[in-house]
Simulated scan of single mutants.
Amino acid sequence: MINSAEEFIELRDSDTPAKYNRAGKDDAPVSVWWDLIEKYPHMRVWVARNRNIPKEIIHHLSKDDDPIVRDAICSKYPLDIELYLLFSKDSDEGVRARLTFNKGLPMDILKDISENDSSEFVRSQAVDNYKRREY
């Protein structure tokens, strides 16, 4: 368990793999995640990459201004359906393309992206992933 924002940063910045890895998988109280987001905004992407952040943090970071943070969140699964829909219309094509690899993405949303996304690159990623998941 991570008990403070400062402990998370220490773990994340560590050269020791066991410590560094804890930043990506250990639980923390929701107050620690909020402290990190509010006091250490450069750590948002690392918060987003933690496997055990609570839903309220996932929802908050899904609307982050930084597409790298949104990319990290859209890679998580399972996500709530409203987040799959939100990310499928994200302003950043990299986020939309990353979403097509999310194995929890409902097939109907993946199909819609493959047919209707404004980016040829995203559509091609969606088509490839749709075909891969059909079999």
Rank of each mutant, 00 (worst) to 15 (best):
I2W: 01
N3Y: 04
N3M: 04
E6R: 09
E6A: 05
E7F: 01
F8H: 02
I9E: 03
E10V: 01
R12M: 10
S14F: 08
S14E: 05
T16G: 00
T16K: 10
P17R: 11
G24C: 05
G24E: 05
D27Y: 14
D27V: 03
A28E: 01
V30A: 08
V32K: 02
W33N: 03
W34Y: 15
D35I: 03
L36I: 10
I37Y: 08
P41E: 14
M43I: 15
M43L: 06
R44G: 01
R44W: 02
V45I: 15
W46P: 00
W46N: 13
V47W: 02
A48M: 06
R49S: 06
N50W: 08
R51Q: 12
R51C: 04
N52H: 11
P54I: 14
K55P: 00
K55L: 13
E56L: 02
I57R: 03
H59P: 00
S62C: 03
S62D: 01
K63H: 15
D65H: 09
D65Q: 10
I68Y: 12
V69R: 05
R70F: 10
R70C: 06
A72K: 05
A72P: 00
C74N: 09
K76D: 04
Y77G: 02
L79D: 06
E82M: 04
S88Y: 08
E93V: 05
E93R: 14
E93Q: 15
G94T: 06
R96D: 09
R96S: 12
R96H: 13
R98A: 15
L99E: 07
L99A: 11
N102P: 03
G104F: 13
G104M: 12
L105S: 07
P106Y: 05
P106V: 08
M107G: 02
M107W: 00
I109H: 13
I109T: 13
L110G: 12
D112R: 13
S114H: 06
S114M: 07
N116D: 02
D117M: 12
D117L: 12
S119G: 13
